[in-house]
Write a protein that binds this DNA or RNA. Structure first.
Length: 845
RNA sequence: GCCGCUGUGGUGGAACUGGUAUACACGACGGACUUAAAAUCCGUUGGCUGGAUAAGCCAUGUGGGUUCAAAUCCCACCAGCGGCACCA
C-alpha cells in the first residue's frame, strides 16, 4: 500500500484538470447554468493570505457540488489590481505599479493554482488592463451622459506638511501617517456619482434577493431611509434661510434653538467679506458680494471653532458627543415659522454636513443630545409631549401634544401629519424622505487608477472623451507622489494633460483625477461572462445566459460599500437596457475573518501571519482546504490553530489508508467473481445515507464544519466495525463498491485531489467531477430506534430504547412504569404528562 | 458615538423550528507497539461530592423574566469582534 502523498497527487491532478479543461464553463450549454462568484482579490505584495482560501474553498465546494449535480458551472477568477499599496510601494521604491502588480499576480496565480480550485482561468480578468478599464471608463461616460456623474466640492484629508491629499487609511489618530503632522479637511472639486438617485430601489429590491439577513439589514441601515419634513427657518434682518430636516415635525413648537454644522454655508455667507462661489468650468473660486446682510458679531470665535472642527474626523465628532461643544452665532436669530419666536443659532461639530441639510432644529425636551447641549449652555427646554419628566432627561416616547397651539391634545402620529400639512400649506416646509446614504465621491488624486475620461474645455466645460478614443490610458510618470496642489501625479504630465476639445477643437486639459478602486469591481462579474470581447463590455446574449450571479460570497466588510456600489451600477445599466435583470446577485453570503493564533487580526507587525504556501508544503492543499472548512462556523471569525490542522491531517491519512486498502480488496473479490461481503450492511448503509443527507444539506447552508464532522463520524464508524477476515487476517471494512463510490463523491468537493486519485483507483477513467452527486433514501435516514428521555419537571431521570415511531399512549405508559420514575414520583400523582414525539416524556408533579 | 454580530469544557466548536447540553476535532492523562523516540492503535477526559463505569448536585458571559421544559424567546447589564463612506 502506498503512503498518502499529497505532493504527488495534487500536482498531478491540477495539471490534468487544466489539460482536460474540467472546470471550464461553456457559454450557451444546454445544461442549466450556475454562476458562483467570490470577490476577486487585490494582488498584494504579501501574497495569498490564509483568509483568501476560506471564501474560495467554500464556493469551490459549492461549484464542484453543482457541477456534479449536473449544472454548467461558471466559477471565474480575476484581479482587482488598482489600489493604494502598489502606488505607495512605487513612491517608496520607484518600481512601476504595473511591474509590481504583474509580479504579484504571478505569485497569486501560482498560489491559487496550488489549492486545486475549479476556477475557469480562461475568463481571467484584470482591472488594470486597458482592455478592461476601457469599459470601466465607458460606463462612467454613461453616468456622465445621464447626468449621474457631476462635480462638487467635497472635503478631502490634507496633510499641510507633506502637501498631499491623504486616504482615510493614511490618517492615523487624526495625524498624517508619514510625517505625523495633524491632518486637516480641505475642500476639493471632486467627481461624484449620484447613487442617492437609486436609494429607493436599492432599498426596496432587497426584498427580491436572498441575502443573509444581517447583510440585508446592514444595507438597509446604510441607506438609512427616514420620513419627516424639511422646515425653513428665516433669519432676522436677512433674506437668507436655514433649512432643517426633522423626523419629528410634531415637536416644532419645542424647537428652542437651531444648530448648524461648522461647514454650513450660512456661516460663510454671514461672515464679512465676499461670498465665495466656485466656477466649475474655470476651476476657480470667485467672489460675489451679498448686499445688506446682517453679520455675526463673534466672528473670531466662530472662525476658531470652525477651524478646529476641520481637524476632526466625523467619527471623532460624534464620539465626542459626551462632551458636546458649540458656539452661538451672536447677533443673529432664527425665526421659528410656527410661532415666530426668535431663537438662537449655534454651530456645533456634532452636526454633520453630510446628513440631511447640515442643520438641525433642536428640541431639547424630546431629544437626548439636544437636551444635554441645552443643559450645558443653559438653553430653554420646553415640554411639548406629555409622558416624561424633562427636568431629568429628554422624553422620546409617545404621548399627547401640549404647548403646541393647534396640535394640543393630539397624539404624536396625527400631529406629525397635521404639522406637515400646515407647513406645506404655507410654503414653510414639506414632507421629505431623507437618506443617510450620500453620493459617492468618485475622484482620487492618485496615479494608480483608471483615468476619468473627461476633457475640460474653457469654452465647452466638461466634455466626455469620444468612445473611439477609449481607453484613456495611464501615462508613465516620473513621480508617483501626488502634487503639492493636491492634484494627482498625472497633473504634472503636461504633454498628456494638454489636448484638444473633442467638441470645439480648441485647447483643453484632461481630467487628472483617477477613479477609486471600487470602480473596476463594480461590474467585473459582467466581464467574466465574455472577458475577451473587444466590441462591447460583454455580449448581451452571453449576459442573458449567465446573469444574474447565482451565489456570491464575500467578506462582511464589503457589505455596505462594494456590494451597494455594484448593485447601483448594475441597476443603472439595467435602466439603459445593457444588462438583463435588475439585481446582479441572487444570493449573497459572508465568511468570517481568520485570525492569528493569538486571536488577533493577522498582520506583519504582529508577526502572527500564516503563509498558505508553508501549510501546503507540510500537509498538502486538501488538508488546508478541509481545515479551513472545519475550523469553525463559516460566517464567524476564527483563530488559526497549528494543532487543529493535525486532526484534519490524520483524517485524510486515515481516509487514504482505508480506501486504498478497501479498493484493492473489492477488486480482489471482483476478480474472483465473488460479491464483496457487506455484512452489518444495515447499520453502515443507514449511516452512509445519513452522511449523504447531512453533507448535501450542510453545503447549501454553508455549514461546512458540521459537514466535515459528519464525514469524520462516518469514517470512525467504518473503522469501529472493521474486522479481520480470511486466512491472512486481512482487515475488512464492510464497504462494497457502491458505498465506497458514494463516500468518495461526498469527499470530492472538500478534498478534490485525494478523491480524484481514489476515484481513478476504483477504475474510472473520467474525472469524478463528471460523475453525479449521490442521493439518499429518506426511509433509511430515519432512525429505527430512539432513546426516549423520561423527565420529571424537565429533569432527565431515565432513558428507554423504544421504536422511533412509538405512540403517545404507549410512551406515557412506559414512562409511568419505569422504576426510576416511580422512585422519583414517590407515590405522588402527576399533574400533567407531556409527550414530544420521537424525543421525550416529561412528567410534571 | 451609530449600525451589525458574537459570548457554551483546558482549546476550536456541536446542539435542526424551545425538548437528552458538550457531536466532531485539538490538547491532556493512562495503556499497547518500539532498545528508544516519532508515527499509529486502544481507553479516560465539563466541575463538585463519592471507592465507584452506584447515586446525586452544579454548569452555556452576568442578573432577572416567560415556559411543563431555555444555550435557544423577552428585558437589563458586561466583554469581545466587524463596518462607519479615500484600505480593499
Amino acid at each position: 500500500m502506498t503512503k498518502y502523498d499529497p505532493k504527488r497527487i495534487e500536482s498531478k491532478w491540477q495539471k490534468k484538470w487544466e489539460k482536460m479543461k474540467t472546470f471550464q464553463a461553456r457559454d450557451f450549454s444546454e445544461k442549466e447554468k450556475y454562476y458562483c462568484l467570490i470577490e476577486f482579490p487585490y494582488p498584494s505584495g504579501e501574497g495569498l493570505h490564509v483568509g483568501h482560501p476560506r471564501s474560495y474553498t467554500a464556493m469551490d465546494i459549492v461549484a464542484k457540488k453543482r457541477k456534479m449535480q449536473g449544472y454548467n458551472v461558471m466559477f471565474p477568477m480575476g484581479w482587482d489590481a488598482f489600489g493604494l499599496p502598489a502606488e505607495n510601494y512605487a513612491i517608496k521604491t520607484g518600481v512601476h505599479p504595473r511591474a509590481a502588480t504583474e509580479k504579484n499576480i504571478a505569485n497569486f496565480t501560482r498560489q491559487l493554482k496550488s489549492m486545486g480550485f475549479g476556477f475557469d482561468w480562461s475568463r481571467e480578468i484584470n482591472t488594470t488592463d486597458p482592455q478592461y478599464y476601457k469599459w470601466t471608463q465607458w460606463i462612467f461616460l454613461k453616468f456622465f451622459e445621464k447626468g449621474l456623474a457631476y462635480k462638487a466640492k467635497m472635503p478631502i484629508n490634507w496633510c499641510p506638511t507633506c502637501k498631499i491629499g491623504l486616504a482615510n487609511e493614511e490618517v492615523v489618530d487624526g495625524k498624517c501617517e508619514r510625517c505625523g503632522a495633524g491632518a486637516e479637511k480641505r475642500d476639493k472639486e471632486q467627481w461624484m456619482l449620484r447613487i442617492t438617485e437609486y436609494a429607493d430601489r436599492l432599498l426596496k429590491d432587497l426584498e427580491s434577493v436572498d441575502y443573509l439577513e444581517r447583510i440585508a439589514k446592514q444595507q438597509v441601515d446604510w441607506i438609512g431611509r427616514s420620513e419627516g419634513a424639511e422646515v425653513e427657518f428665516g433669519i432676522t434682518n436677512s433674506e437668507l434661510r436655514i433649512r432643517v430636516f426633522t423626523t419629528r415635525p410634531d415637536t416644532l413648537f419645542g424647537a428652542t434653538y437651531l444648530v448648524v454644522a461648522p461647514e454650513h454655508e450660512i456661516i460663510k455667507n454671514l461672515a464679512s467679506g465676499p461670498l465665495r462661489v466656485y466656477d466649475p468650468v474655470r476651476s476657480e473660486t470667485t467672489g460675489r458680494r451679498p448686499g445688506g446682510e446682517s453679520r455675526v458679531k463673534n466672528q473670531g470665535e466662530v472662525r476658531k471653532y470652525v477651524e478646529a472642527a476641520k481637524g476632526k474626523s466625523d467619527l471623532e465628532r460624534s464620539e465626542l458627543a459626551k462632551e458636546k461643544t458649540g458656539v452661538e452665532l451672536k447677533g443673529i436669530k432664527a425665526i421659528n415659522p410656527v410661532n415666530n419666536e426668535e431663537i438662537s443659532i449655534w454651530v456645533a461639530d456634532y452636526v454633520l454636513p453630510t446628513y440631511g441639510t447640515g442643520a438641525i432644529m433642536a428640541v431639547p425636551g424630546h431629544d437626548q443630545r439636544d437636551w444635554e447641549f441645552a443643559k450645558k449652555y443653559d438653553l430653554l427646554i420646553r415640554e411639548v409631549i406629555t409622558g416624561g419628566d424633562i427636568e431629568k432627561q429628554a422624553y422620546v416616547g409617545d404621548g399627547t401634544l401640549v404647548n403646541s397651539d393647534f396640535l394640543n391634545d393630539k397624539l404624536v402620529p396625527e400631529a406629525i401629519g397635521d404639522m406637515t400639512k400646515w407647513l406645506e400649506k404655507r410654503g414653510m416646509g414639506s414632507y421629505q424622505v431623507n437618506y443617510k446614504l450620500r453620493d459617492w465621491v468618485f475622484s482620487r488624486q492618485r496615479y494608480w487608477g483608471e483615468p476619468i475620461p473627461i476633457i475640460n474645455c474653457e469654452k465647452c466645460g466638461h466634455v466626455p472623451v469620444l468612445e473611439k478614443d477609449l481607453p484613456v490610458t495611464l501615462p508613465d510618470v516620473e513621480k508617483y507622489q501626488p502634487t503639492e496642489t493636491g492634484d494627482s501625479p498625472l497633473a504634472a504630465m503636461d504633454k498628456w494633460v494638454r489636448t484638444k476639445c473633442p467638441k470645439c477643437g480648441g485647447p483643453a486639459r484632461r481630467e487628472t483625477d483617477t477613479m477609486p478602486n471600487w470602480a473596476g469591481s463594480s461590474w467585473y462579474f459582467l466581464r467574466y461572462c465574455d472577458s475577451k470581447n473587444k466590441k462591447s463590455f460583454a455580449d448581451s446574449e452571453k449576459l442573458k445566459y449567465w446573469m444574474p450571479v447565482d451565489w456570491y460570497n464575500g467578506g462582511m466588510e464589503h457589505t455596505t460599500l462594494h456590494l451597494l456600489y455594484s448593485r447601483f451600477w448594475y441597476k443603472f445599466m439595467y435602466d439603459l437596457g445593457l444588462v438583463p435583470t435588475d439585481e446582479p446577485y441572487l444570493k449573497r453570503t459572508s465568511h468570517g475573518l481568520i485570525l492569528g493564533e493569538d486571536g488577533e487580526k493577522m498582520s506583519k507587525s504582529r508577526g502572527n501571519v500564516i503563509n498558505p504556501d508553508e501549510v501546503i508544503k507540510k500537509y498538502g492543499a486538501d488538508v488546508l482546504r478541509i481545515y479551513e472548512m472545519f475550523m469553525g462556523p463559516f460566517d464567524q471569525p476564527v483563530a488559526w490553530s497549528t494543532q487543529g490542522i493535525e486532526g484534519v491531517n490524520r483524517f485524510l491519512n486515515k481516509a487514504w489508508m482505508i480506501f486504498t486498502h478497501q479498493i484493492e480488496m473489492i477488486k480482489l473479490f471482483e476478480d474472483r467473481g465473488e460479491k464483496p461481503i457487506r455484512a452489518k450492511e444495515d447499520q453502515l448503509a443507514r449511516q452512509l445515507h445519513r452522511t449523504v443527507k447531512k453533507v448535501t444539506d450542510d453545503i447549501e447552508k454553508m455549514r461546512f464544519n458540521t459537514a466535515v464532522a459528519m464525514l469524520m463520524t462516518f469514517l470512525n464508524e467504518v473503522t469501529s466495525q472493521a474486522e479481520k477476515v480470511g486466512e491472512e487476517a486481512q482487515v475488512w471494512y464492510y464497504l462494497d463498491r457502491d458505498d465506497t463510490r458514494d463516500f468518495i463523491k461526498l469527499l470530492a468537493p472538500f478534498a478534490p485531489h485525494l478523491a480524484e486519485e481514489l476515484w481513478q483507483k476504483l477504475g474510472h477513467t473520467e474525472s469524478i467531477f463528471e460523475s453525479d452527486w449521490p442521493g439518499y433514501n429518506e426511509e433509511l435516514v430515519k432512525l429505527e430506534e430512539i432513546e426516549l428521555v423520561l423527565q420529571i419537571n424537565g429533569k432527565v431521570r431515565d432513558k428507554l430504547n423504544v421504536p422511533a415511531d412509538i405512540s403517545e399512549e404507549k410512551a406515557k405508559k412506559l414512562a409511568l412504569e419505569s422504576e426510576k420514575i416511580r422512585k422519583w414520583l414517590a407515590g405522588k400523582k402527576p399533574k400533567q404528562v407531556i409527550f414530544v414525539a420521537g424525543k421525550l416524556v416529561n412528567i410534571v408533579v
